[in-house]
Computed example of a mutant assay.
Amino acid sequence: MTRLAVCVRVKLHLDREVVRQNLQDSWDARWGAEALYQVAKRSTARTRQEWAEDKAVLKLAEKLKEQAASGSDVDITLLTLEALRRMALQEPEDQKPVIERVLALMVERNWRHSAKSLARLFWLGAPLKGEGSLKKHFEPKSLPSQLRSKQTDLDGPDLALILAAMKGEKGVKDTALQSKVVLRLKEKFIHRGLSATDIVEMAEALQDLGVQDEAALRPLGQEALRRRGELTPDESHRIHTAYQAMQLPLPKVWDTPGSMKTKNTADGKITTQAFALQDGHEKKRHGNNDFERTSPPRVVRDMKMCSY
């Protein structure tokens, strides 16, 4: 067995032990929901399935399901539901009663909740939008309207959830909300907090929705190219396909090398020149890694030190 394989097994064992110990000694839904959410977000498709079969994770999921069924903290409940859904440990239909209760609480409190919680609710409820009491809350004047009013508070992961909820034939269609999302995608630094997988799925959703606003598409594509070292071969193929379908090949998202732009600011005119991205300058994959590679053995050149 290689050193790398040993390190992986040790890390997984330690993680399981930490979860087991805290489940018994210091359980709290806040850390439990966040822990499961981080496992879901940082795992690959393969390792996510492996984690979903782990006994400690399954026990954690059961405790979170119990908490969600009776808890009154809307924000923690929504985080719990998202984590369970991402880990494929609970189906949308099974979450329906909790989503209905959360919606009732939000309406009772006049929607006084964060943009992040609203975006989570939008994503969680999208597959059930036409069922029973949920239907009226996904009409333009209800939940979508609340999201539109909090446009400036939406961050990258929030936009990813909204786009995912709008994607496909069964997605929630709201032209006004879509316009707000596209406008927000033009903001500087909006891509912070997004995983490489999020970026790929956002590109596919934008293509599905027929978005062709290059001012929104170019920054997203540029972020994907900066982080191409994080993309799997399948993800790379998918995002290239999406951009090709939007009539903007991914390599073309950069301005022509050598071209210059001038804009007026409070400090005067600022001129920028475009340069081509060079190999080796892209960001390396780190956020979604299952483990970190161990450092190579240190070589000591000092013969005197070697004798100790």
Rank of each mutant, 00 (worst) to 15 (best):
residue 2 T to G: 02
residue 4 L to C: 06
residue 11 K to G: 07
residue 12 L to D: 02
residue 15 D to Y: 15
residue 16 R to G: 06
residue 18 V to I: 08
residue 20 R to Q: 01
residue 20 R to G: 06
residue 24 Q to W: 11
residue 24 Q to C: 12
residue 25 D to Q: 15
residue 28 D to A: 15
residue 32 G to E: 08
residue 34 E to H: 13
residue 35 A to I: 07
residue 35 A to T: 13
residue 37 Y to G: 00
residue 39 V to H: 10
residue 40 A to R: 02
residue 42 R to I: 09
residue 43 S to D: 10
residue 47 T to A: 06
residue 47 T to F: 13
residue 49 Q to K: 09
residue 53 E to H: 04
residue 57 V to G: 08
residue 59 K to R: 12
residue 61 A to W: 01
residue 61 A to S: 07
residue 62 E to T: 10
residue 66 E to P: 02
residue 68 A to E: 03
residue 69 A to K: 08
residue 69 A to W: 00
residue 70 S to E: 10
residue 70 S to G: 05
residue 71 G to Y: 04
residue 73 D to C: 05
residue 74 V to C: 05
residue 78 L to Y: 01
residue 78 L to H: 01
residue 81 L to R: 02
residue 83 A to H: 01
residue 86 R to H: 14
residue 88 A to V: 11
residue 88 A to Y: 07
residue 89 L to E: 02
residue 90 Q to C: 13
residue 93 E to C: 00
residue 95 Q to W: 04
residue 95 Q to R: 05
residue 97 P to A: 07
residue 98 V to F: 09
residue 99 I to A: 11
residue 103 L to K: 00
residue 103 L to T: 00
residue 105 L to T: 01
residue 107 V to C: 08
residue 111 W to F: 13
residue 115 A to G: 09
residue 117 S to D: 12
residue 120 R to I: 11
residue 130 G to Y: 00
residue 133 S to W: 10
residue 134 L to W: 00
residue 137 H to L: 01
residue 142 S to R: 09
residue 145 S to G: 07
residue 147 L to Y: 02
residue 150 K to H: 10
residue 151 Q to H: 03
residue 156 G to E: 04
residue 157 P to F: 06
residue 160 A to W: 04
residue 161 L to V: 09
residue 164 A to C: 10
residue 167 K to E: 11
residue 167 K to V: 05
residue 171 G to I: 08
residue 174 D to L: 13
residue 174 D to V: 13
residue 181 V to C: 04
residue 182 V to C: 09
residue 183 L to F: 05
residue 184 R to P: 01
residue 193 G to N: 03
residue 198 D to F: 01
residue 199 I to P: 02
residue 200 V to A: 05
residue 205 A to G: 06
residue 205 A to T: 04
residue 207 Q to Y: 08
residue 208 D to K: 01
residue 213 D to G: 13
residue 216 A to D: 08
residue 218 R to N: 05
residue 221 G to I: 04
residue 222 Q to P: 00
residue 222 Q to I: 00
residue 224 A to C: 10
residue 229 G to D: 14
residue 231 L to W: 15
residue 237 H to D: 09
residue 245 A to G: 03
residue 246 M to I: 07
residue 247 Q to R: 10
residue 247 Q to Y: 09
residue 249 P to G: 03
residue 251 P to K: 02
residue 251 P to H: 10
residue 252 K to H: 15
residue 253 V to L: 03
residue 254 W to M: 11
residue 255 D to T: 00
residue 258 G to P: 03
residue 260 M to S: 15
residue 260 M to K: 14
residue 261 K to Q: 12
residue 262 T to K: 15
residue 263 K to G: 06
residue 266 A to P: 03
residue 274 A to C: 03
residue 274 A to W: 06
residue 277 L to Y: 06
residue 278 Q to E: 08
residue 278 Q to L: 12
residue 282 E to K: 11
residue 284 K to T: 14
residue 286 H to S: 12
residue 287 G to D: 09
residue 290 D to P: 11
residue 293 R to M: 03
residue 300 V to C: 12
residue 302 D to M: 01
residue 303 M to N: 11
residue 306 C to Y: 01
residue 307 S to C: 08
residue 308 Y to A: 14
